[in-house]
Design a protein around this nucleic acid. Structure first.
Lengths: 215, 215
DNA sequence: AATAAAAGTGAGTAATCACTCACTTTTATT
DNA sequence: AATAAAAGTGAGTGATTACTCACTTTTATT
């Protein structure tokens, strides 16, 4: 089983998909992420998947439904719950200090990004143009993530480990640093040589000192 | 003269464009940035510009040439030199401390982003799919910017104002924070109420403390 | 005012687009 | 083994696509 198919199984676990249906999804992910949604034709997807064009429309009423069917489960079934559970652990049995939490947060995000890179690219590309996706993203991912992060930051602020600053601003700064690292690492310069542990550590320290309580 | 046309004049200063040519460019910028390049038809651009479709192809051999003609001057004539000059000032008569430099850097970036928002959106959207644009972007913008930033950071490190860290990593962290702010401010949540000065200050302080030399 | 060059036009074109549908093949149910 | 339901097919559809070209209008040059 190829790496893509492993990813697929995770994404569409409970659904029983025929072989051809899987191939359609794999082909669509590949083309959408390489050429963009609008520039990809259903004909092209069919050829790449080795199926008749009609087969695509047997399962998806429109091309846009195909797009949404690929991207939506990523948001609702994976990232959303993942984030909730992830941070839940933190809130139930909190890391004693921000440091360990940050390291864990970056590492987890990193794992997901690596696995889902092509689908994430599609999400990033299409969110500005597909209101349906944007809404889902805001509901399922952005809001949940942000709420959790706010809670976490508030927690550490109360413990006196962080500077007094609106949690919203603190969250923006921390998230920028983390995403800046992940985007540099996996999207902008994936070909460069990266000492992941070291760069993670630098990012953690940067956030830590940037938000540290001054004595 | 509308705001868009002012922007245009800056972009295409030396070229003499007829009224219809300007209208084509304005219409194209609007459609490309709203719907994306691939999803915008030349017919649509012509209608919005109030010209015949043939007029577009009188001036641009292909639709892609229209895209490049809009985006390229932004990179070569504006951002590139701007960045070079901008940082040149800093290097010739350096701000005594990092702090003032950062404030100035964010403010300048902020002004440009505000003016060029639609074209910047097009650049961000199309860079993954248009190798020609990507090359130009890397040559004209990314490399120049990065080189300058590296110099600046190195300068402050030598003065002992910054932590010892590969300048590349330091640059990534600083740039992430700045862009994180600008993207949040102007692209993700432009509708939120922003205290620009305060948020700029927080970003500056965050970078400053994050990269500060520890005693 | 005459002439040339440039700008503008819009009907036309072949290719491609997303999508349909009558039909065949495969799978599941009894 | 018979029947029904689901999956798969591919030729065909009208609409839309980027682009052309013979022609008209405007502008610049003398």
């Amino acid at each position: 089983m190829s790496e893509d198919e492993v990813l697929l199984q995770q994404l569409f676990e409970e659904e029983k998909l025929t072989d051809k249906q899987k191939k359609i999804i794999i082909a669509a992910i590949e083309s959408f992420s390489e050429k963009g949604y609008a520039a990809t034709s259903t004909n092209e997807i069919a050829k790449k998947a080795g199926v008749a064009e009609g087969t695509i429309f047997r399962h998806y009423k429109t091309k846009k439904e195909l797009l949404v069917s690929i991207v939506a489960p990523l948001m609702t079934k994976l990232i959303g719950p993942f984030i909730v559970n992830d941070f839940h652990k933190v809130l139930d049995r909190p890391y004693e200090n921000v440091e360990d939490f940050l390291r864990a947060a970056i590492k987890n995000r990193s794992d997901i990004i690596k696995k889902m890179l092509p689908v994430i690219k599609i999400v990033i590309q299409e969110i500005p143009f597909q209101p349906e996706l944007r809404e889902q993203f805001i509901e399922q991912v952005a809001r949940k993530t942000f709420d959790r992060i706010l809670q976490v930051i508030k927690g550490y602020q109360d413990k006196g480990q962080l500077i007094e600053m609106p949690t919203l601003s603190a969250a923006r700064l921390a998230i920028s640093s983390i995403f800046g690292f992940l985007i540099s690492r996996y999207i902008l310069f994936p070909e460069s040589e990266w000492d992941d542990e070291l760069e993670t550590e630098r990012t953690v320290q940067f956030i830590l000192h940037g938000l540290a309580k001054k004595d």
